[in-house]
Design a protein around this nucleic acid. Structure first.
Lengths: 135, 135
DNA sequence: CGCAACGATTGCAAGCATACACTTTTGGTG
DNA sequence: CACCAAAAGTGTATGCTTGCAATCGTTGCG
């Protein structure tokens, strides 16, 4: 739980949680249309529109128009936005790696198999659940 | 991660994250003075004062004056507020119990020792970290 | 008592998220 | 072409959080 909390903590000093959710979805799915994006994170189009205004202003995403349909607006991560998400995920991975570094290979192996066991029993975690925290 | 996310998800439909942080701190420490409470969750007194206004309005906490010093205001959970926090923690415990229920005693034992190993290696998790998500 | 420090609150202001209703532009279809 | 539906955005409004500065009551001390 501490690992999860810390991984969220860093990002929340830079962007808000709803904003981070947008970035995470885009990182997972690539550029998305406003409508699809809004549905993915569960907000109304008007809410998303203004949220994107602010995220564009901050430089994390870009609005693009698809050549085939000028009424559709594609949202895509800028390099900075991509960087932000990647960095956040790396930080958590590093945090875990650091924790594991003090353990012996046998201990690590035991942890890996136990975690896999637990994850298997937990079943598929819905993307929506993870999206709540942007993880 | 899914377990953590779900445990936060339910509560966030009832109170905001800053509000839930207040409740969690009170649940941990018992009734607190405004100043102490504000410092614990890292907000300015003015912010807290208005936040408490809303939480009192919602019925989760109560303002009390200490007999010895009438300028100090004690904040304490109402039964409803206590219930909210307790319920949130129970829900996470139930969620984990349900996951574990499909496993054999041996598997459970392996998971317990592996998790203890990991938690030990991770060291003490600072309360501040956990407070970010109200966990 | 009088004054300084303390503790909480309020005035004022800004930013963000959210919702409902409405408008504008665009695409598809009869 | 004319019309309808899709897609995005605006107008308007509400509520929460946060911050800085100022105020009000209270306590402690000389």
């Amino acid at each position: 739980m501490g690992v999860v909390a810390r991984s969220v903590a860093g990002v929340l000093e830079i962007v808000t949680l709803p904003q981070f959710r947008v970035l995470v979805v885009l990182d997972n799915s690539g550029p998305l249309r406003m409508g699809v994006l809004g549905e993915a994170i569960g907000v109304l189009p008007s809410t998303l529109s203004r949220a994107i205004d602010r995220i564009v202003e901050a430089g994390w995403v870009r609005r693009t128009t698809r050549p085939t349909s000028r009424r559709e607006v594609l949202i895509e991560l800028t390099p900075a936005g991509q960087n932000l998400v990647t960095h956040a995920l790396e930080q958590r991975r590093d945090n875990i790696a650091e924790i594991l570094s003090v353990l012996s290979p046998d201990e690590k192996a035991a942890i890996v198999s136990a975690f896999e066991l637990f994850a298997g029993a937990a079943g598929e975690t819905s993307t929506e659940d993870l999206l709540i925290l942007g993880i």
